[in-house]
Amino acid sequence: MDWLSDEDIMQEVKQGNTDLLALLFHRHHKHLFNFFLQTGVEYHHSEDLMQQVFYRILKYRNSYREHADFRKWMFTIARNIMRKHFETRKRHQEQDLPDILLNFIENQINNSDEEEKIKILYTALENIPAQDRELINLSRFQGMKYEDIAEITGTTVGAIKVKMHRAIKKLRDHYFQKADQ
């Protein structure tokens, strides 16, 4: 099934072949999971939100427009669900990053120099607002184009250029402050 595009599969799902959604889940759940983690959702909630995103895709499969970029649609839904999640938890702006991000590094990376750098990156990420983490994640970790990010976040490409630079600037300030010490 690997030769089928996300969009082809989603079209099949829309036409009632709902089992195939498991394929799209398989392809994207890891990235989606990390999108939540890195924006500041705890480990178990991240899984819950990830399931919710795909449940919603299933439920609203009929509203999928033919040939529409599947990842863009998925992240739009993910962002809405995450925003609701933060609202109900009353934790805006200053979310801590889940412990797993830092603990995981200690367990997985043997090279202590590399480990230190990743730790600094995550600490820097923790010190910037969730909206900025979200932008950085979509652009750098998910490799999305500015046009797509603009559509997902409901703004213009021009605005994204500036917002992205501000987000990176904040991250950079924290990152190099730590690294120079």
Binding site: H29, K30, H31, F33, N34, L37, S46, E47, M50, I100, L101, F104, Q108, I109, E114, K117, I118, L121, I136, R140, F141, Y175
Partner: peptide, 10 residues
């Protein structure tokens, strides 16, 4: 640095 940072397994 971001590109070299591994993703966490769900």
């Amino acid at each position: 640095q971001i590109e070299q940072t591994p993703l966490i397994e769900p």
